[in-house]
Each structure stands twice: as structure tokens, then as C-alpha cells.
Computed example of a mutant assay.
Amino acid sequence: MQPHATSMSKPARRVTISDMADALGLTKSTVSRAMNGYTDISPATQLRVKRMAEQMNYQPLSHAQAIKTGRTRALGFVLQLSDHDAHRPFLAEFLAGLSAGASDEGYTLTVASADSDATLFDTFRSLRRDGKADGFVLPRAMVRDPRVALLREMDVPFVLYGRQDDPKGCSWFDIRGEDAIHEAVLHLAELGHSRIAFINGGTKYSYARLRHQGFVSGMAEAGLDVDPDLVIENKVTLAEGQAAAATLLEAAAPPTAIVCAVDRVALGVYRAAAQRGLSIGSDLSVTGYDGIEDGTHVHPALTTFAVDNRDAGARLAKLLIRRLRGEDPETLRETASAQFINRGSTGPRHDKCRNNISMGGKQ
């Protein structure tokens, strides 16, 4: 009598690195390094190994990999809640890009927060100590960046969203904000403006110095002199933009156009202009930078330079993974352009701004 067949069967044996190596005729070490993207393995061999892994349905044990390599295949990102716009609306797009870029390479993203500068360092140390991040993406590079100093000291890989004056050992992705501000000046000069003011962003950040350089170079190319009285630094919020614009518009010879390093400051300029009976786009031209959604809801909509934050996040994730795989950090530096969005907040020069102020338009 034949035994009854059973529907129960033994689970398929898990495919191992040894199985892969035998099938490919390679050493286990070569297969392992190819799977982890090490640069000493040729791209052709890496592709061959990864195709075989798909054919054999090879699934690495993440815990075993972490023990063997000391890596958890996780990227770290620490949100600084003390920043003036830590909950900025474009953060969601940036994090989505980071997560997608990590996932494409088989990594995960660990997000933590620090509620003060004092706790920031402890957060980095704890994520590294607890094996929750192999390296870090650092948003908004600073001129003297204490995060860079700490991670250099800890010998932990990192990439910056922004550039550094001391570039040794630094990788980064950045948007060329200086080019955008330069273009904004030329745009206004072509419209006939010659008294062009500049309200810069936070001077502790690297972007502010670069955007200031862009303003100066744009004025030089347009054949215009920079009036120091029309340049205001270190303004990042709507209220600060409003106050800075009030100072500019109450000058004896006010500007007819204002270039702003960040959109929120530009929206503050709208308020200051409204208080003085000035119409944006006709009496006073304004440009911003960031491309935040709020700029589409004012009237007229803000002329600005938009940044693809999702793409920035994805590119930073991939740069950090390449650094983790052993590439020279100083070869991992990329930049991109912001997109000019020409809306209604700029127009031909009109002298109502000056006339209105001189006739008592400050009430």
C-alpha cells in the first residue's frame, strides 16, 4: 500500500552566498563585495552577481550582514527643531527623496530629531552607537559647521546639502543659489531697474555667502553699483522680511526692486509694500528663492527660483551610499540649477515707490 501523498512540504532551503559563488565560479568574498557595491569590484562583475541573485532569489540576512560588516545599511538624518523653519513644507518632499534614494540601493532611512543645539551631538552619537545609521545626510550646510567637525572626529561618513569653505573630506550636493540670484538681478535690470536691493538669508549658513556673491556679480554684469544701504543681511522669516523692507522703502532713495534670498522674506516684503500703498509688480518688483507653495497664493504670485527637493534628497542618499562603499569623498560633489519661475511680482521700473514715500506714503 502506497503512503498517502501529503500537501505539506519542506520549506525551500535559503540560498546562501556560497551557492551564489559556486554558480558564478567566484569566491564568496567577491560575491559579497559585489552585492554591497564595493568599488574594487568591476561594474560588470557587480551586474553579473546582482542578476544571479535575482535568478536564485537570494535574500541576504540583514542581521548577519550587520555583524559581519559593522553596517546596518541605514542612512541617518537628524532634524534640528531649533531651526527657524524646521517644519517647513518642503521637508516632506526632501525626506521622500531621501527614503526613495536609500531604498533603491537596499538601504533604509533613520530619522531622528534634536530639540536644541545642545542635544544635537548626543543624537548623532546615539544613532551611531546603537547601530541605527552608518552615515549621515546633513541638511543646510553651515559656514562653521559643528556637525562636520563632530563626524570627522568620529570618523563617520557624511554628505552635506550645501558646500563648505573647508572642503577636505567633504561630499555634497547643492543648488547653485548664487547663479539664481545673479539671474534675478539681470532679470530686473532688463526691466529697467537700477536701484535694486538685496535681503539675504541666515549668515550662519553657507548659502547666504554664495547668494550674496551672486547678487554682487549680477550687479556688476548689469553695470550697476551696489549701494551698501540697499543690502540687508541675516533675515529668514516673514516678519524679518517685512521689517527689512520697511527700512529699505523708508530710505530717502528707496529701491524699485528687491531681490530676496528666501521666499518667506519676499512674502514679508509684500506686507511692507501693502502698508505703504504700493502694488507688487508695478510699483515695486520682488523676487524670491525656494519655490514654496505660499508664493503661489499671494497676489500677484511670487517670481522665484524653485528647487526640486525630492530630487535633492534622492541624490544625497545615493552620494552617501557611494561614500559608504568606499569612494573618495572629495570626488562625490554635485550641483544643480534652480528653476526660474517668472510670475507677476516683477515688472518694468515704475517710480511710484519713490514718489509715494517722499509724499508721505509711510502712514
Rank of each mutant, 00 (worst) to 15 (best):
H182Y: 13
D145R: 09
L324S: 05
Q2K: 14
S82A: 08
E293A: 13
R73F: 05
S358I: 12
L249S: 04
S9N: 12
V298S: 03
C353H: 08
S279V: 14
L127E: 03
T69Q: 09
L316P: 02
D117M: 11
A23Y: 09
E327K: 08
T304C: 03
I175E: 03
N57C: 07
E250L: 12
V156T: 15
R51T: 13
M154L: 15
S279N: 13
G131T: 04
Y161K: 04
L98S: 02
R211K: 14
D83C: 00
I341Y: 06
E54M: 12
T110L: 04
N36Q: 14
R71H: 11
S82L: 01
F173Q: 03
E153P: 00
S279R: 15
A141T: 12
S62K: 13
G281H: 08
Q46L: 05
F158E: 05
Y270C: 02
M154I: 04
L319V: 12
M52K: 15
G25W: 11
L75G: 00
L109I: 00
A253N: 14
D22M: 10
I196T: 07
S206F: 12
E183A: 14
G97E: 03
A74V: 04
L81A: 10
K168I: 09
Q80I: 02
L138Q: 00
N234A: 11
I17Y: 08
D308Q: 08
T45E: 06
A21D: 01
R13Y: 00
A66I: 00
F173C: 04
T331M: 09
D351H: 11
A273V: 11
H193N: 07
M20E: 01
R71N: 07
L120G: 03
R140T: 13
D19W: 08
R310A: 12
Y58C: 06
V31W: 04
S18G: 08
R325M: 07
R125F: 02
R144S: 13
L316K: 06
R14P: 01
V265H: 04
A338E: 05
L91N: 05
W172R: 01
M52H: 07
A21P: 04
R125T: 09
L230C: 05
H63L: 13
N36E: 10
G101R: 03
S99P: 01
T303P: 00
H4E: 13
S282R: 14
H299N: 12
K28H: 10
N342T: 02
A34L: 06
D229Q: 14
T123C: 11
Y161S: 10
L138I: 15
I196H: 01
M52N: 02
T203C: 05
V137R: 09
G344I: 07
P43V: 08
Y58W: 12
A21T: 07
L26Q: 06
V156W: 07
R322Q: 14
R13P: 04
R333Y: 05
G97H: 01
S18P: 00
A86D: 03
R33Q: 11
G169C: 05
I181H: 02
V143C: 05
E240Q: 15
S217V: 00
T30N: 06
R147E: 06
T39D: 14
V236A: 10
K50L: 13
S285R: 08
K168A: 15
P329R: 09
R129E: 13
M359K: 14
S337E: 15
G70E: 07
A21H: 05
F173D: 00
E153G: 06
I196K: 04
